[in-house]
């Protein structure tokens, strides 16, 4: 009997979830899809770099010097005769990692913080959000510079520092979403079922508030990557011999007139990534917007 009924459920027609509908809409948006594919491609390359890079990371050929693109060095070499393609691939590892890890940190803190503040409300909300306001008011560059000075230059710290700044906006968005959802009757229904607040936040609030958060995330990643590039440019971020796109661009800018390819190629890599993220974010915004009809 029991088995018969369970097969019943497995056999039942699978409904189309809102996520599935959103995917169908996203799939129609060529630009967003292309962005997504490029990002996946770049991430794969970044992951596999140690095995697929054409040259060793620190292989120098001082005799070669800065040479323009050629058959041996597709994107040319830098002033120490290091292969630029290899440099860009290793730099991409750092840049993408900063982008994704720092954003994940921001996501985790921001979503939890905002959801709790929005759900509990009242005094707790006031205190939590005032704290966010205070952190907002701090000039974040000084904050990061201070961190770097006190704790030394450490790539993990860089992730944390950027994440710690970016979560503020996430928290605000999440809180707004949750406050709106809290008025909905299905949340009241969950309360009257006797579900503990933890479960209500996790099962009923967060999944429904995720749409705008996902969109904002795709827009945060580029800003985080730019921030890293900026910090590295200033000499506060990644230190040589480690490299990142920001650092490569900064070196390229110095020798822009003699060796333009040293600026152009790292710049191109960053630009393509940022464009892809923006197109993907744009597409996601349209796809996740439930007000758009299903046509």
């Amino acid at each position: 009997m029991t088995t018969e009924i369970i097969t019943d459920i497995a056999e039942a027609e699978q409904g189309s979830s809102l996520w599935h509908d959103a995917w169908l809409r996203l799939r129609k948006n060529r630009l967003a899809l292309a962005g997504g594919i490029i990002l996946v491609g770049f991430s794969l390359i970044a992951l596999l770099t140690p095995w697929i890079a054409p040259y060793a990371y620190d292989a120098q050929n001082l005799e070669l010097g800065a040479s323009p693109p050629s058959a041996q060095h597709w994107l040319g070499t830098d002033i120490f005769g290091r292969d630029l393609l290899t440099q860009i691939m290793y730099g991409g590892r750092v840049s993408l990692a900063v982008g994704f890890v720092a954003t994940s940190v921001a996501l985790l803190i921001g979503v939890t913080w905002g959801a709790i503040a929005g759900y509990v409300g009242g005094k707790v909300d006031a205190v939590m959000m005032r704290l966010v306001d205070i952190l907002y008011a701090l000039p974040f560059m000084i904050f990061i510079v201070l961190l770097m000075v006190v704790f030394g230059r450490n790539i993990l710290l860089l992730f944390l520092a950027i994440g710690a700044v970016e979560w503020l906006t996430m928290a605000r968005i999440m809180r707004g979403q949750v406050q709106q959802l809290r008025q909905q009757e299905f949340v009241e229904a969950a309360i009257s079922l006797g579900l503990p607040p933890r479960t209500i936040i996790r099962r009923h609030l967060i999944p429904n508030a995720l749409g705008p958060i996902i969109v904002y995330t795709t827009l945060t990643i580029p800003s985080v990557m730019l921030l890293e590039a900026f910090l590295s440019f200033l000499g506060l971020g990644i230190q040589p011999p480690q490299t990142s796109w920001g650092l490569l661009i900064s070196y390229g800018a110095e020798t822009m007139e003699e060796f333009p390819w040293l600026l152009i190629f790292p710049g191109l890599a960053l630009t393509i990534t940022l464009f892809s993220l923006n197109f993907l974010g744009d597409g996601l915004r349209d796809a996740l917007d439930v007000r758009r009809s299903k046509d």
């Binding site: 979830s17 809102l18 996520w19 909905q184 009757e185 299905f186 009241e188 229904a189 969950a190 009257s192 079922l193 006797g194 099962r203 009923h204 999944p207 429904n208 439930v290």
Partner: peptide
């Protein structure tokens, strides 16, 4: 809570869409 339940007015708002 188990012993008392509620049916709401708007069936479009009272179910979790996800």
């Amino acid at each position: 809570r188990r012993r008392m339940q509620m049916i709401f007015q708007d069936p479009f708002a009272s179910l979790n869409p996800r």
